[in-house]
Each structure stands twice: as C-alpha cells, then as structure tokens.
Amino acid sequence: MTEFLVSTGAMSALMCLLLAVFLLGSSGRLTRSNRYLAGFLILTGIDLVGLVGLILPVSVADGLAYRVPLAFFQMPFFYAYIVTVCLPGRQLKPHFAVALAVWAVVMMDMILRTGGWFPFWAEVALQVQFYGYLALSALALVRFQRALKQSRSASQSMQLRWLWSVIAVSFAAHALVLVRLIAVWQAWPVSWSALQLANGLLALGILCGLTLTALLRPDLFQALDPEDAAPPRSTLRPDAQEILAKRLRQYLATHRPYLEPELTLKALARRLGAGERDLSHVLNHHLGQHFFDFINAARIAHAMQLIREDGARLKTLIDIAYASGFNSKSSFNTAFKKHAGQTPSAFRSSQNPD
C-alpha cells in the first residue's frame, strides 16, 4: 500500500507540474486565467509531494511539513482563475495579501510553538477558507450570468455548465479530504493509507481532467469583456423611451436581428443609432425584460411560426432551432418551454395531430 501511495503522489505531483509549465507557456486572451490555474496546479503538486515523504528519511520528511501552510494560497488561486474567466476587472490583490499574512502566522507557529506540526487551529481555518472561496466562486458565476442576460442573446450555457461543474467537483472532492481529517481527529477505525490513496487518485483525475479540458476546449472559457457588462442607468424621458421601444419593435419585425446567434446589446444599439445604456433601460424598465429574454421571445415566436408552416415535418426540430437563432438544442428547448409553456415536440404534435 505504501509503495502504491507514494507512486500515486509522485505521478500526481509530476503531472501537476508538467501541466502548469504548459499553461505558463501558453498565450492568448486567457493568459491571465491560465497563470492562475497554473499556480493552483503547482500548489496542489507541492501538497501531493507530501505522500513521497512516507519513504524519505525522517529528517527530510519532517522538513516537508513546512510546505503545508502553502495550502492557504490554493483557493485564492482557484478563485482568481474563476473570476478572471468571468469578471476580468475584479481586484484580486487583497485575497493574496490575506493568504500571505495567514501563511506567515502559521509558519511562525510551527517554528516557535508546535515544533513543525501543522496546528489544529490552522487546519480548521484552512477548511473554512476552502468553503468560503467556493461560495465566492459561485457568487462570481451568478453575477456573470446576470451580466450575460443584460448584454448577450447567446446563453453560453456550455461555458457556464463547465465552470459550475468545476466548483461542484471541487466541493465533492474536498468532502473526502474532510472525511479523512475527521477520521484522524476522532480516531475512527478506518485505514488512513486507504483514504490518502483515494484522495491522491481523485486529485489526479480531477486536475488532469480540468486542465486537459482547458487546453483542448478553450471555447468553454470565454471571458465576459468589461464593455459587455450591464450598462449604467439611462436618463431617457418616458416619451423618449416609448419612441425607442417602438423603433426597436419595428427593427425586429423588419430586419429580424434575433436570427443571429451571437447578437449583443451593443451591436443592436449601434444599428438602432441608440445608446447602449438607453436601450438596456428601455428593455429592463419599459418592456420589463432582460435583453436575453427579449431576444429569445422573438426567436421562439419565429420557431413556432416555422413549426406551423412545416406541416409535412420536412424539418427537424434542431434545424428549426438553428434557423431561429439558437446555437444549441438545449438552449432552444429551455427557451421554448419558458416562452411557449411546453416543449417544442409537444407544440409540434399539437399543430400536426396526424
């Protein structure tokens, strides 16, 4: 068991390092996010090196204990990765400053008081930090989704599902770590080596999957540009709002811009010759809809018309989805049920009972 545990730790740490080096050498619009992800991987690799200490001399293994306080930097790097994908303008320095302060205090405690042992209070603080940063990461995604609804007609559901899955998997994986720690604290009759091995294998699988996905599917990590965020409040008078709302309806009826899958609030405002914040205010307050829902309502109306006309069912529902401006079947089904009150298949059956 010990040899297998050491081998797992060594392979996991090496994989983290190799993937981190690759990320640090990459370039492009996600360079900043890749660096934070690389930092998280390096710190995770350092943590996994502790498993190798099982076969090292006692003096060397004791020295490895001083790597443990570095774990306080892991979740700030994880959070920074999520935030720079979703909200690039967020200030992150305070998070790292706090982590540095806690690391310094824990190191002093280990050197002067506990003789190289990671103190119990620090272990508790580390667990609190982990779940706190998971909550902050989830909040960043919620804000990202709100901004998308204000400015974009495409849901980017694939990107959002991926980021939510990263948070969910991290939460589930850490539950095993927490079980191992509780087992040690409460002296449960379980195998410490087996739990450590499970942790190592799970960490290896998660980190490899996350990093390889980031490298092979960069489209899952499209950042929301700062200028696409919800614009500030408009100063349009009520009569001017009514005029702009009328122009908007006329433009949609004549030019059907909703058929463009990547239509944005900024692009539509430019075509109308209106300010982005004015158009956003008219949509949100005068018409009572986010840009995302307003455009999707027009798309669903168009799709319903196509279904009514397709009496012989020559078109598939996915063809109708694409022809209506949607870029995926899942987003089409979700929007159709929301705006039509039933699924596309049910609507088609009601229109063509035979």
Rank of each mutant, 00 (worst) to 15 (best):
L134A: 14
K93W: 15
S191T: 09
C16Q: 03
I295R: 02
R29I: 05
S350T: 11
R146M: 08
L263P: 05
G50C: 02
Q145F: 07
G205L: 08
E276A: 06
L139D: 03
Y79I: 03
V49L: 15
F40G: 13
A10M: 09
G116E: 06
L248D: 04
P57W: 02
A267W: 02
F96A: 02
A229H: 11
R271Q: 12
A99P: 03
A168S: 11
R217E: 06
N333Y: 12
P94N: 10
L139M: 14
W192D: 13
S280L: 05
L17R: 03
S137P: 05
R161D: 07
S234H: 06
P232C: 00
G25M: 10
L56C: 13
N284G: 05
S151Q: 08
S345K: 15
A194K: 08
Y251I: 01
M15I: 09
P76E: 05
A245Q: 07
A172C: 08
V68R: 13
Q74D: 00
H285E: 14
A97L: 15
L317R: 04
W188H: 11
D109G: 01
G341A: 09
A147F: 05
T334W: 09
D47C: 04
I55H: 08
F332L: 10
L201V: 14
L24P: 00
W164N: 10
V169S: 07
L215F: 06
N34Q: 09
A346T: 14
L224G: 02
V21N: 00
Y66N: 05
I42Y: 01
P257Q: 04
M108Y: 13
I82C: 02
F4G: 12
A297S: 14
Q250G: 12
N34T: 06
S191P: 11
A203W: 03
N327H: 06
L19V: 00
S193H: 11
A269N: 06
R256A: 10
F332M: 08
I167E: 10
S324A: 14
N333W: 11
L23R: 02
A61D: 09
D47H: 14
Y322I: 00
A340C: 13
A335T: 13
K149T: 05
S151T: 09
L23Q: 03
F332G: 02
P231Q: 04
M11D: 00
H286E: 11
G53D: 09
R113F: 14
P353Y: 10
D219Q: 10
L126N: 07
K315R: 14
L43Q: 05
S137C: 15
A229W: 03
N333Q: 15
G63V: 07
A80C: 02
K329L: 07
Y251E: 04
R161N: 11
P353M: 09
H174P: 02
F292H: 14
D109N: 12
L252T: 02
M1S: 12
M1Y: 12
M108L: 15
F118Y: 15
P76R: 11
A140V: 06
L70R: 07
